[in-house]
């Protein structure tokens, strides 16, 4: 395959422009679709002026808008976090859920629900559960990273195996918690674990926007460092990069982003894995474009998946994780089978 830098950058800018158009279209479609179907114009009118009939305005502004925006912010955060992890670990398979972040975050959140019990209500409770998810995610990924690192750098195979081990351990401890807790909290945990975007409201959206926004602003600052990290950690150091700081910062931001998303919307499979993969296939591994494009694509994908989850079996809603997994898994398998076509060797 022959591609010049100029072509690649041109394609990257085209993709960014296309996604910048697609995302608002997806958001508008998401606002218009659902149990009560509205036209796009009606939805836009309801959104902007509060007109279009009192009911439409209420549905759009109070129910669908927080939900669609939450999907967009979390999709962007997950996809950009996935892109950063894959760069840091020099492995296109390093999805946050494969390296233990998601399982650690789940355990952290369960622990807080069990210990906090009925105290955890409203915004404060949500923040605390998110904090638990964050701490759990950070601890899990640090442990995995520690297990996989030696003087010679980070072994990717060991890292994936350690991720499996930590995921299993977190799952076992989580089950133990569920086993010993009372029925009410058990229900709380399992409802929370199912996650999904149906719980979207303004406090959740506010928390997601603050945290997700910070992650989305912070990660691109490491784009150049990530570009050099693909050469290897020593090579990045020889190119003047503060590798230890970069590693810690990236792991920290990803754990914040993924931990928060697990806390707010549950586990959403494959957005962090598949989106950066596909974007990289299209525009190459330059993180200056990859991070931003992954974020936009992830936002679009999750908004579309959420819309589908509300429409396919309406008025019943499917958990959005089912839709992303149904889209993601076949895609992922086909990528695995064709990886040599685009020069990826794993």
């Amino acid at each position: 395959m022959i591609t010049s830098i100029t072509q690649r950058r041109h394609r990257a800018r085209q993709l960014l422009a296309a996604l910048a158009v697609l995302l608002p279209v997806a958001v508008l479609t998401g606002l218009a679709s659902g149990a009560v179907s509205l036209g796009p114009l009606q939805a836009l009118q309801a959104l902007l002026t509060g007109d279009g009939g009192g009911q439409a305005a209420m549905i759009v502004q109070q129910i669908r808008l927080p939900r669609v925006l939450l999907a967009a912010v979390m999709g962007a955060t997950l996809a950009m976090s996935g892109a950063a992890m894959q760069g840091l670990f020099r492995n296109p398979l390093a999805d946050p859920s494969l390296i233990g972040v998601t399982a650690g975050a789940s355990l952290g959140a369960s622990l807080l629900i069990v210990l906090g019990g009925g105290v955890l209500q409203g915004f404060v409770g949500l923040t605390l559960v998110s904090l638990g998810a964050f701490v759990g995610g950070v601890l899990a990924v640090l442990l995995v990273y520690r297990l996989a690192s030696s003087e010679n750098g980070t072994s990717v195979a060991t890292m994936l195996l350690a991720g499996i081990a930590i995921t299993a351990l977190a799952g076992a401890v989580g089950s133990l918690l569920e086993f010993f807790t009372d029925n009410e909290r058990l229900r709380q945990i399992s409802l929370w674990k199912m996650g999904g975007l149906d719980g979207a409201n303004l406090p959740r959206l506010a928390l997601a926007s603050v945290v997700g926004g910070s992650v989305l602003l912070a990660l691109p600052r490491y784009a150049l460092a990530l570009n050099t990290l693909l050469l290897g950690e020593s090579e990045a150091r020889h190119l003047g990069i503060d590798v230890n700081h970069t590693k810690l910062a990236l792991i920290g931001w990803v754990a914040v982003g993924v931990g928060t998303s697990v806390a707010l919307v549950g586990t959403i499979a494959f957005v962090g894995l598949v989106v950066p993969h596909v974007v990289r296939l299209w525009i190459g591994p330059d993180h200056r474009y990859l991070l931003a494009a992954s974020a936009l694509a992830g936002a679009t994908l999750l908004v579309v998946a959420d819309t589908l989850s509300r429409v396919v079996l309406a008025p019943t809603e499917l958990p959005v994780g089912i839709i992303t997994a149904l889209i993601g898994v076949p895609f992922f398998i086909s990528l695995l089978r064709q990886r040599h076509h685009y020069g990826m060797q794993t």
Binding site: T3, G153, R280, G284
Partner: peptide, 8 residues
């Protein structure tokens, strides 16, 4: 060299 990402 460890590089296995498809840079040009």
């Amino acid at each position: 060299s460890l590089l296995n990402f498809p840079y040009t």
